[in-house]
Amino acid sequence: MYPWDIPAQLWAFQIFTGLAQGSVLVLLAVGLSLIFGMLTVVNFAHGAFYMVGAYVGVFVYMQTGSFWLGLIAVPVGVGTIGLAVERFLIRPLYGRGIDYPLLLTFGLSFVFIDLAKMMFGKVGLPFDAPEILQGAVNIGIGYFPAYRLFLIAAMAVLVGALWLFLEKTSYGLVIRAGARDTEIVKVLGIDISRVWLMVFGIGTATAGIAGYLSAPMESVIPEMGIPVLVQAFVVTVVGGMGSLVGAVVAGLMVGVVMAITSLMAPQLADASMFALMALVLLVRPQGLFGRKGLME
């Protein structure tokens, strides 16, 4: 389909679809970006935490029958696993090269995938949106799935809360200070390792929520985190490693670009994401909102 063949209404609808798709990417990239920005850990297990989030949530749902309980259990459960991973596996690697934690988390992702297979089987678990969010709502330009509207709202609330936490609380101040200059924060008598622990916990918890929120739209299978990991990295690179605003803008942008490419040239949909990344890197090597010199 050529752009001039597409009616305005379909354009609008497609863009909206892209925003919903981008919301999941935003949640994933926020955590990834946060962890990298503060800890300079490239978390290759991020997709696995996403998958674990979906399984924890669906497990809670199977036990209790409540979708909403999962929204509390997932961040708590996945965040706790994240805390343990940081404390016992990643912490001993600080001060070595950037590739040490990268390899560790890469391996860890396979451990998580196999554990999920052992505990829940290779075949997916059935999971649907709660009844109140099933079906479609008229949004003026046509019917749109209620659940995807909820997803956009949930993303906005979560990212808003995270922003308030980082910008307006004293904990947030310490985290931001830690990212700027670790040495000064240490000199001021703050235990930086506890800050890093918390950041990793928050980052993995958001990945878990992203997985749980995606679960009603796709299949809950052990490998579900593999393709999203690549997308999350692209978003993080486009937005700029370590930038919250960058993750939000880039996540939505990637979602919309992919949605529009799917309409005009479906076979290029995946490639469009990388084309966007290449374009951004050519113009701004640090990403749209990234700070210069973070990688050095």
Binding site: L10, F13, T17, G18, G142, E218, V228, S262, L263, A269
Partner: peptide, 12 residues
């Protein structure tokens, strides 16, 4: 994974 981008044109 996500088919949402393919669906609006079918609906239209």
């Amino acid at each position: 994974k996500d088919f949402s981008a393919f669906l609006p044109q079918i609906m239209a």
